[in-house]
């Protein structure tokens, strides 16, 4: 039998057994303490495995990355170089191009995904085949971005003019006498970046739709009916009542999409690997790591990504605290 299969089975059975045993054992251990100390010690024993993982895999390496971003390329004896890596990022045209692309991702991916999600949620709410429509639009979210990349590689396929187009989009625009367009090979107007954004909008609209749809169903229908009785048309009902009530939900979906747009990696790596002016910050980091072997610069890129996400982290924490104090 494959040794890796044996190892996997050992982990799947062994880890739960060890963890449950640990909790039983710790309960037995705290029993020797006084009741007061027991209450103090027990929670930390229950939390210890999770805190260990969080500390080791998230907090500790993040601190090290911040330090590493202030050091040079040499990995064996890294020297302190101050903000040199950051200066490189903000003066290098490739890095700034990647940053610009992330801004485009942030604005257009977030805007289109939330907009389409809202549109679809409102529309399917009024048709009989709602669950079928939702399933179809939601489905791309279940597959990997790599699989989505393959799907869209065939959509965007480009053959020189004069030959039969096998890509769906070029065949479509060809049927009305346009194109062919090299969707994934066009740096001009950052067309290829928009082509990549379209793939992710296709994937994530279902996510926005599901959350917005759930909020939509939570709106009291009597409220909408009352407005209709008062003579408001459907558009007015939507704009004056539905939309304001959906506000908090739209904010939550938008923040999630903003984070997704900043972390964008798989699609770019798989479809263009950053060529044709499509590079993004997360892909730039992997390139600095593996292609150029400059862990100092790669760390600086990661820290810039973290800094861009910090405002949203603060926003989420504030939101969470106000919810907690309400309940």
């Amino acid at each position: 039998m494959d040794a890796r299969l044996v190892a996997a089975m050992e982990v799947v059975i062994g880890v739960p057994v060890v963890l449950v045993g640990y909790i039983w054992g710790s309960e037995w251990l705290v029993a020797v303490l006084s009741a007061r100390w027991r209450r103090v010690v027990r929670p930390w024993l229950w939390l210890a495995p999770a805190l260990g993982f969080l500390g080791f895999f998230l907090i500790y390496p993040t601190v090290l990355t911040v330090i590493r971003s202030l050091q040079g390329k040499d990995s064996l004896h890294p020297k302190f170089v101050g903000l040199t890596n950051y200066r490189w990022f903000f003066t290098n045209s490739d890095a700034l191009g990647a940053l610009l692309n992330n801004v485009l991702w942030l604005v257009f991916f977030t805007g289109f995904t939330v907009g389409m999600g809202l549109l679809v949620a409102v529309l399917v709410d009024r048709v009989r085949f709602e669950s079928l429509a939702k399933s179809i639009i939601f489905l791309p979210l279940a597959i990997s971005m790599v699989a989505a990349s393959v799907i869209w590689k065939f959509m965007y396929d480009y053959k020189p003019a004069g030959t039969a187009q096998t890509g769906t989009l070029n065949a479509l625009i060809g049927s009305v006498g346009l194109g062919p367009v090299g969707w994934l090979q066009s740096p001009g107007f950052r067309l290829s970046t928009f082509a990549l954004i379209a793939v992710m909008v296709w994937m994530w609209t279902g996510f926005a739709m599901v959350i917005i749809s759930a909020a939509l169903k939570g709106i009291d229908p009597g409220l909408l009916e009352a407005a209709r009785m008062d003579g408001a048309n459907e558009w007015e009902v939507f704009r004056k009542i539905t939309l304001p009530l959906l506000g908090p939900t739209l904010t939550v979906v938008s923040t999630t999409m903003v984070i997704t747009s900043l972390k964008t990696f798989d699609i770019v790596y798989t479809l263009t690997n950053g060529n044709y002016s499509t590079d993004v910050v997360a892909n730039l980091m992997v390139k600095e790591m593996f292609t150029f072997g400059d862990f100092g610069r790669a760390s600086a890129v990661a820290v810039i990504l973290l800094l861009a996400i910090l405002p949203i982290m603060g926003f989420n924490i504030r939101k969470f605290r106000s919810q907690e104090s309400m309940s």
Partner: peptide, 29 residues
């Protein structure tokens, strides 16, 4: 279901960690 000092603060840290990009952890790990 347990009460202990620092519980709320610790959970706020978890909420914060929800969005930390794993890119910042790759190199040291």
């Amino acid at each position: 279901w347990m009460t202990f000092p620092g519980r709320d603060l610790l959970f706020v840290v978890v909420v914060g960690l929800l969005v930390v990009p794993l890119q910042t952890t790759l190199i040291p790990i």
